[in-house]
Amino acid sequence: MSQVWNLLLQGMVNSLLFLYDVLAHNFALSIAVFTVLVRLLTLPFTLPAQRSAKAQQELQPEIEKIRKKYAKDKEKQTQETMKLYKEKGINPAMGCLPMFLQLPIMFAFYQSIVKALANTPLQMVSLGKFASPSLSQLVPLGSHFLWLDLGYPDPLYILPILVVATTWIQQKVATPPSTDSQAASMTQSMQITMPLMFGFITMSLASGLAVYFVISNLVGIAIQYFITGGGGLLPQRGKKGK
């Protein structure tokens, strides 16, 4: 298992190094391009989840009716909801499974960025085991981009702010407006705490990883928008004029 993991890491580290080589030795650009490529390659995993979420979202009014109708009988409520899903051909589990399948890829990508940004001897030893001999001449990577040293946290805290903003927008886009007031309140609270937590953690992470978070969020927002519309961020597509 660890060999498969190492192979995946090796492929990603060398892909990053290759992009660095062809993109004018700009590692920030390499991270951005590779992030887009990985997000596109994992679309087959993420699309079913997002489509399933959209379908469930469209059934909300009917589910709400079931909730009201069987407010005192939770078992019946669940049975009727599942029956409705079955009738509409929706498998609620489809929302989660593909996401878990893509996780190893995302973790490997995350770790490969950390590896490529090696700036201590021990990190460099680790990189030396993964980098292909033909790409080793690129090491150490030029880690400076604008005001950033990509191996170190952003001293101006601009990237953490961007991480907060894009994480918030992505959550807004991904989360449909809820008709259930309790769920809506919980969602709203999460939509504030999650981006803030991410921003806080990014303050102490290598800024190269913050670049990854921002780009990944932007791609996620674009994909989500084209599939499900603006979610809670914008008025839902198709509702205008009804």
Binding site: M99, Q102, F107, Q111, L122, Y152, T175, T187, M197, L205
Partner: peptide, 30 residues
């Protein structure tokens, strides 16, 4: 709650956990 923990949020949460567990802080010597 299900809505909150589906979609990209799951990935983000798990990313954060991994980041914390692996201690991959830039510039910090191991």
């Amino acid at each position: 709650m299900r809505r909150i923990m589906t979609g990209p949020n799951v990935v983000l949460w798990l990313f954060m956990i991994v980041a914390l567990l692996t201690g991959c802080r830039g510039g910090a010597p191991l």
